[in-house]
Design a protein around this nucleic acid. Sequence first.
DNA 1: CTAGGGTTAG
Length: 586
Amino acid sequence: MRSFVRKRHLNHLQVSVTTRTQYGSAVEEATDYYALLLRRCVAEKSTTGVRIIHHQMKESGFPHLTLSVKLVDAYLKCGSINEARDMFDEMPRRHIVTWNSMISAYVREKKSEEAVRLYRRMIMESVAADEFTFSSLFKAFSHLGILRDGRAAHARMVMLGLDVQNAFVGSALVDMYAKLGRLHDARAVVSRFDKKDVVLMTALIVGFIQSGQDSKALEVLGEMSSHGIEPNEVTFSSLLIACRNLKHFSQGKAIHGAIIRRGLDSAKESRNSLLSMYSKCGLINDSVRVFRTTVRPNVVMWTTMITGFVDNGLHESALALFRDMLRCNSSPNAFTLSMVLRACSSLALSRQGRQIHAHCSKAGLDTNQYVGAALVDMYGKCGCVGMARLTFNALASPDLVSMNSMINGYAYNGFGREAIELFNRMRNLGFTPNGATFTSALSACSNAGLLEEGRRIFTTLESSESGPSVTHYACMVDLLGRAGRLEEAESLIAQAKQRDVVLWRTLLSACKVHGDAEGARRAAHGVFELDAGDGASRVLLSNAYAFARRWEGVIEAKRTMRGLGLKEAAMSWVEVGGEVHAPEGT
DNA sequence: CTAGGGTTAG
């Protein structure tokens, strides 16, 4: 075994170190030996090896500071952050590098609070932080979303007289300010920088994208060329994301060209951005072309392509590609599975959905928050409420989206009471319903005829932060309409701030159901006023007049149609009280 | 011996 070989080496080494130190010489040489072995442990990711060296160093009474630094680093590189920390805490004296190693490791491991805690301890123990410390620290504040402390750290760094032109510090600062939404400060850092480089500028681009200012991100490209800074594959990849968000495919194609010209098109990440850009712009064939020319697609690339098919309504292709992916022995991740499940939802394919559920369980991802929600949604849309419930109950800590999926699953399948029950329980658990939640809850009331419950929910919605959207008004009009509260529904439409034909159409069908001819005529007018150019809305109007048996109105409507050259519409048959009549003048 | 920007999802 490898570890046996290593142990023998170490025993041999121990002898040599103790004898040599006995003579009071060659300490440095011993350090070099240890360092050599540590490098080997790191290469093999052997925490055990590091532990043995750590132990022997202590046994041999050989507490060398440089070696301690290397040991902590070796623990970290083997992924044993806790053991590194134990050693860190035991050390009587600590080199600044060790502080920095620990802090950066915590940031890497997304344990930024601990990184900040160590920074505070540095201040308390009067240890002078350096540029390395701050470049990690800014990232920590950006993760934690604490602007105040990030700013304070920035000030402190300047106060300590550290190099503000350090490239690493600069990009970390830009990144921090940008990710905390302070694009103005990020800009200021960039403009104060004497030797701007590609990373600094890319950080700014990414910052703009993440705060939703995609066109500003694209403008940075011009700024770069005026400073003579060459974009690289990371820059291009980010710019493509901006193009995708803006659905600016001509710009995206131009960037694709630039990537090819510079020979940067083999980078997986820029290919993924490229693929995603084309898909989101509806250019699925271009996506497929990029995908097909990729030698060994990684999971992300498979997933992006599958997502592209789903986004473009090609659900069967998405499922077929998923099968290809499995055939190529590529393991789907949570992103892949939630996307494939969405394809099943759209196609209402419960058999395939169940098979994919098995994949999720096999990968241990069936309780992942994205996958879990997608599973609940899939079962709901496939009409398997029982399975939806089982999957939902299996989630350790259901989040808002999975609850929405469950509520929607109930509503969709006519379990109004259960939907409302979950809606109420969710609020008691302290969740704030979002727009989707209200839509599901209101449609549940509508399907189950729960008028009063729906009214209560709508009142809650009105006092919520975002307020009711058109969809919510439509649900409510539907609910009131089905309950025969036609006048109330009509006044609700008047009350809605947004004008939308959907509202009038919903009212119109309710009026027809309840035989309210005058109401139907007014609703048809509502549609007509918002959609006057549309021949179909004129037909609707003439039908509504016919329904109300106001023939002069029908004739008037038909005449206007003819006048507008809408021959087909004018000649269309008229629906009167469910019966169809020949058009005027035939 | 420690530090910077990027890919897919509800």
